[in-house]
């Protein structure tokens, strides 16, 4: 564990609670993509199957359970509890392409053909593009509420901080995993446009509007 990874994990936790807090306090999931949240639930389910096979640390186990339960909780709030406020008309990013591409990519580039390992690999690729339905939705509606912007910033920062963690681990621990680094770069690049708007607009008190 190093400071970048801890900061990344904490940023991820902040993102999750910001989103839950926004939905719960406004009693609305307006502007939130169920497709993205569903992908995150799928990502954590596929990735953390090793909860049953490998123990790493209490921290690791607690975080995994937190990510899985909160992602399903978020989906429940959008799909059931506050369904009336869900913008299903604009949440229509086609999911078959990223899903298909991630499965094919995992079959070509993986560490081993162990089933759990293959599902882990799919989850790594899938996480890198899971935010696309959300970004697509903002692009279509042309704006995002400020809490949604903070959520997205924290979520993007999480993988960006992990990139620093991988640089650190490469030099300090001689640890390098090409799959996560490749996916992490793609994931972070997808947020770049949003980061720019967030820094130039939201942090100056303006609403996030698409140019």
């Amino acid at each position: 564990m190093n400071i970048f990874r801890l900061a990344g994990d904490l940023s991820h936790v902040v993102a999750i609670f910001l989103l839950l807090w926004k939905i719960w306090t406004t009693r609305s999931c307006k502007g939130i993509s169920l497709r993205s949240q569903g992908l995150f639930a799928l990502v954590f389910t596929l990735r953390y199957l090793d909860l049953f096979t490998t123990y790493i640390s209490l921290y690791n186990t607690v975080m995994k359970i937190l990510f899985i339960t909160s992602s399903y909780g978020t989906c429940y709030l959008i799909f059931k509890k506050f369904r009336a406020t869900y913008d299903h008309n604009v949440d229509n990013f086609p999911l078959q392409y990223p899903l298909g591409a991630c499965v094919i990519l995992a079959l070509i580039f993986n560490h081993s053909w162990d089933p759990v390992e293959l599902l882990w690999t799919v989850s790594i690729y899938l996480e890198s593009v899971a935010i696309m339905p959300q970004l697509w939705m903002i692009q279509k509606t042309g704006e995002a509420e400020s809490v949604t912007s903070h959520y997205l910033f924290a979520l993007g920062a999480y993988r960006a901080l992990y990139l620093l963690n991988w640089v650190y681990r490469y030099f300090e621990e001689d640890h390098f995993d090409a799959i996560v680094v490749f996916a992490g770069i793609i994931q972070t690049v997808l947020y770049c446009d949003f980061f720019y708007l967030y820094i130039t607009k939201v942090l100056r008190g303006q609403r996030l509007k698409m140019p």
Binding site: R5, T54, D114, Y162
Partner: peptide, 10 residues
Amino acid sequence: EDDIEGHDEL
């Protein structure tokens, strides 16, 4: 080499 005996990151 890759450490596939458990991924320690989240």
